[in-house]
Design a protein around this nucleic acid. Structure first.
Lengths: 198, 198
DNA sequence: GACAAAAGTAAGCAACCGCTTACCAAAAGT
DNA sequence: ACTTTTGGTAAGCGGTTGCTTACTTTTGTC
């Protein structure tokens, strides 16, 4: 009561920016791109919603920034060989760190939207699969990497978004075992002879 | 000109119902649940949009009916052993038959929406994965079936919805080979000894 | 042909969406 | 101390959404 309702904090643009970014990361992860409204984001960040557009221009650009920020950490710190494991771990243990690197589930929930899909394909999928492709020395390593990525996404879909049983309730380690074992088989060069060389 | 603009056809409730159903199947497949509006459906069916609610009650119920109708044909005619192949073929050759059994891509596009997801999980995923589980005699056959389903969905996602390259441009047969070979390895009982029997 | 049930239509409601505008107050520059 | 710049705010615009309502027209039945 000693404090006026307006200007509760001394102005701090950097703080409100990151507050918006954090709130957006949480909400995109929880509900996906479409189901998250700019009013929701602003409300959770306790910030006027017009500021969202001042700082990020549009909802789409905000989404892109959230994705980039959170994928960088995972992509740059983890060596390629452990990438499938780490991505899967991230997808399997949903609800762990909300503010952290956990936007993957949000990505999955946003596939349906055309604009969000474009961001995902152009800015994220490419860097992920290029890294994964290093794990195979087959002629079609890039394709196999995409198949691995597709599997990880699909598992996240069914488990975290669709919540399909028994996958949704399955033990994390059990799933991890199946996938890592099978992925290794997929990536190893099956066609040793290579009869058709183009 | 000899024909009045209203009542161009003699009234045929069954015809308008199936017209709505067909238009909905096409649009859901093309754009997904959320991006398809009831006005779009009614327009393509050349039917007043209020009739959609007379016949189906809500957009959600219409979606459920479309999914059920189209999955029945695939599930009841195809033997389990060929199911992965057939599902994948269906997903890979997008844009083939729009009015036919090709709503799978539409399913994928609709994952983001909570209501659509519920329909998918309860009415579809269950019957698909129960069938797939027959292909493995492992203790955790159901889980492995879910992993197969997840892969097929993920591939459809990346290829048809996200259009990620090189997967999107890859040869249909090449993808089919990789997947069928690897799925077989996943489904075969890896733990022959089965030390922990519950 | 009268009449009730069913099929079809036009219009609009209430809510929500992303985004913009006009304005105000706090900070920074001088 | 005055002005400029900038962070913050309230209000609302134009559009879309799923769905409803009040109404007209056709159809089957006697």
């Amino acid at each position: 009561m000693c404090e006026d309702r307006r200007s509760r904090r001394r102005r701090d643009p950097a703080a409100t920016r990151t507050a918006l970014l954090r709130a957006a990361a949480e909400l995109f992860a929880e509900r996906g791109f479409e189901q998250t409204t700019v009013r929701d984001v602003a409300a959770r960040a306790e910030v006027n919603q017009a500021l969202l557009f001042r700082y990020f221009g549009s909802k789409q650009e905000l989404f892109a920034e959230v994705l980039n920020r959170n994928s960088e950490t995972l992509l740059e710190t983890v060596p390629p060989a452990e990438l499938p494991r780490r991505i899967l771990e991230n997808v399997l243990s949903e609800g762990a760190v909300v503010g952290g690197e956990h936007t993957l589930v949000g990505m999955l929930r946003s596939f349906g939207d055309e604009r969000a899909a474009r961001v995902l394909r152009d800015e994220l999928g490419e860097s992920y699969s290029r890294r994964l492709a290093r794990l195979s020395d087959a002629r079609d390593a890039r394709l196999r990497a995409d198949l691995v990525l597709a599997w990880l996404f699909g598992i996240g879909m069914l488990r975290s978004v669709l919540r399909k049983s028994p996958l949704a309730e399955a033990d994390e380690r059990e799933v991890l075992d199946h996938v890592t074992r099978t992925v290794a088989l997929l990536l190893e060069n099956s066609e040793s002879g290579d009869p058709a060389e183009e």
